[in-house]
């Protein structure tokens, strides 16, 4: 008999059409069908969702905050990616 514990799943809920799915928590379930049903009961008891994604937590690859420097700092000195970097004469109103 297997004594394996139920794996962990991450739950993403779309609150209404037009909005993205958002991570709202995790839960344990034996398989994907049970994960969806449990997610409905745990995270949408008050109509918080119109669509649910579940994914087994082990399939998520996350960046490591210790590497945040090399990961995200290169974007910080690229001010020319923002519209405010460019000089315009005051006469130009909408651009």
């Amino acid at each position: 008999m297997s004594t394996k514990n139920w794996p962990l799943w991450e739950v993403f809920v779309r609150s209404k059409n037009g909005l993205e799915h958002r991570h709202c928590g995790s839960l344990h379930a034996a398989d994907e069908d049970m994960a969806l049903e449990n997610a409905r009961d745990v995270y949408t008891r008050r109509s918080e969702g119109v669509s649910i994604w579940v994914v087994e937590s082990k399939h998520i690859t996350a960046s490591n905050p210790e590497n945040n420097g090399e990961m995200f700092e290169p974007a910080q000195d690229k001010v020319y990616r923002h519209p405010t970097f460019y000089d315009l004469p005051d006469e130009v109103k909408h651009m």
């Binding site: 394996k4 139920w6 398989d31």
Partner: peptide
């Protein structure tokens, strides 16, 4: 029940 659910999930997989 937990074990049976797990066994069922493995069989399905």
């Amino acid at each position: 029940v937990r074990d049976a659910a797990m066994a069922h999930a493995e069989k399905k997989q």
